[in-house]
Design a protein around this nucleic acid. Structure first.
Lengths: 326, 326
DNA sequence: GATGGGCGTGAGAGCGCTCTCCCAATCCTG
DNA sequence: CAGGATTGGGAGAGCGCTCTCACGCCCATC
């Protein structure tokens, strides 16, 4: 149960600490016989490098942060598990830790400190409030950071996003191909890039669509659909900018005596778990969340590896998942 | 942009490094004037302690791990965000990092290493496979660990759980009070404590209930309900051991021409987001996930603070959330 | 006025690792 | 065979922090 150090390994292997270190770190140019001896010593002693000591000299924490919005905004967000899993996939083989930070009082400041004092090598920012000063501060300080989703105001920052506009267009084409005559959309919040782009992309495809506003929440989906069938009773096709809103909106249609998809076709966006828990299951625009998360991790690691590298943005193409609702 | 060390702070404040360290760590017995000088030096230099250096000597990582099942098992699990948020709430004020680890090839071994080499102070294990050797290894090694949920086989390990039996009884009483005559239950997997206890607790309250087995997944809820109405068409009240299964089961009832709750009352378990995305919204047994997670964190910290402390188990009481389904 | 006990402070020894030298040994080339 | 080039290994200096220990200093005690 006693701690075994490199020193100990070196002693057992009959080499210097430096050579033992070289073997541990896979450095080139160590004689094969010595390397063997060291490896034997490592496994016989059960040696594990002390990360703190290593970190102290390499100035690398081998840990990155994932900054999330608070529980309420995350709740119902189906993506968390996928994001974590995507990031984990690229990060774990490298022995890098994923530190989760949910936004709360002082979190973002803490993340800044962690970054500056070398406790974190970089951060991935999810669902960032446009008014949040943190991204700006981070890039100003030259600290590695990647955004999930295009920032509202253009800024020199690396981000990964899905082509929201193209996704909405996909939905529009689907409704048109279903021969819908009276097409509407329930939008996301218009102060977010995703909300804006999904509306713009849809209108580009269906210019005369009726527009009703929502804010991505289930609740707002209910309200928006009530308004929609009030003002436009003959609607027969709706693109709803999030599955969660669609999930709230469909029962409203049922209650009004309309059948989905027979009377009204519905296309959602996200392909979240809400798409499967809806009745009928949602036809929706899928974003490859897990792959996007993996890409964010890769971008972040690149920045950490070579600072002052030019910012990039990676945009993934969405796809249409056809199920029962439209 | 240059790193400022304690040494630097001490120099600016005109004291020794030791005294500066005392101030940083809030140690007693530092003269008020010196403390002031040091604090001024800290803020003027923008000093942030280097965690790696501290960790090296204190042998504390100030980080704990959250070991999760993989994405597929987590998918649809509505609890992740709540768990993270509960743990974060107690852990962050202490400056302790929450490291997320999703189960995958080698994860559990990695967690063991991290623990042993001092990179992690302790771990919380969620959804542990009964056959998993890791919990046993951890307690054998005397490493701090807390389980989410009672282990299948009794073992000397600290865990936090909800009183599953009592929760199921709550559901049973609810269905009886609704004057249901023909009561059934769709169970969870019978090789898990939760699955077993929910069935046992329900049968204790409704001994003559029809029992159909499921495995907590939505899919299995669909299948189980199909079997149920096949073998027992006059059923008028069902306790479904997870909201996710209930979410799958309700559309089956609708398709068979039965109305919920008028023809068949449904009570779920979990109060997960699936309870709200169901139509009608589910009456369900709520477990205080976030509070339980917070308690897990507290238990873990206690173990870290004083090793070899006796194991404890904390059991929370569930409550019934009455909505529209039963 | 000498003695004992606190208490606050500074010096310095590590914690376990990496990495830069520097030296020795081997190799190639003319 | 001499000379330089190349390579592998060891010594040792830190990385930034905590913490023990010993040293003053001041006050209370006899």
């Amino acid at each position: 149960m006693k701690r075994v150090t490199l020193e100990e390994v070196a002693r057992v292997a009959g080499v210097s600490r430096a050579t033992a270190s070289r073997v541990v770190n896979g450095a080139s140019s160590v004689d094969e016989s010595l390397r063997h001896a060291v490896q034997k010593a490592i496994s016989s002693t059960g040696y594990l490098p002390n990360i703190a000591a290593r970190s102290l000299v390499t100035r690398r924490a081998d840990a990155i942060g994932l900054l999330l919005p608070d529980e309420r905004r995350m709740d119902g967000d189906p993506h968390l598990a996928s994001v974590v899993s995507g990031v984990t996939r690229v990060v774990r083989p490298l022995g890098i830790h994923l530190v989760l930070m949910m936004t709360g009082p002082g979190t973002r400041e803490q993340a800044m400190s962690d970054l500056r004092c070398g406790r974190l090598d970089g951060v991935i920012l999810v669902h960032t409030d446009p008014a949040d000063p943190v991204p700006g501060q981070l890039i100003a300080a030259g600290l590695p950071v990647v955004l999930a989703g295009r920032p509202l105001r253009p800024m020199p920052i690396t981000y990964v996003d899905v082509n929201q506009t193209a996704g909405a267009a996909l939905a529009g084409r689907r409704l048109k191909s279903l021969q819908c005559n009276r097409i509407a959309t329930i939008t996301g919040p218009q102060d977010t890039p995703a909300g804006q782009d999904r509306l713009a992309g849809f209108l580009a495809e269906v210019p005369d669509a009726v527009v009703v506003h929502g804010d991505f929440t289930r609740q707002s989906g209910v309200a928006a659909m009530e308004r929609l069938i009030g003002c436009c009773p003959d609607v027969d096709g709706v693109f709803i900018a999030s599955d969660l809103m669609a999930n709230g909106a469909i029962p409203v249609l049922h209650r009004s005596g309309r059948k989905v998809p027979d009377d009204v076709a519905i296309v959602g966006f996200d392909d979240s778990s809400a798409a499967l828990t809806s009745e009928p299951e949602l036809t929706t625009v899928r974003q490859p969340i897990s792959d996007m998360a993996a890409e964010m991790a890769r971008q972040l690691l690149r920045q950490i590896g070579e600072p002052r590298t030019p910012v990039t943005s990676v945009v993934f193409e969405p796809s249409l998942v056809v199920r029962d609702s439209g």
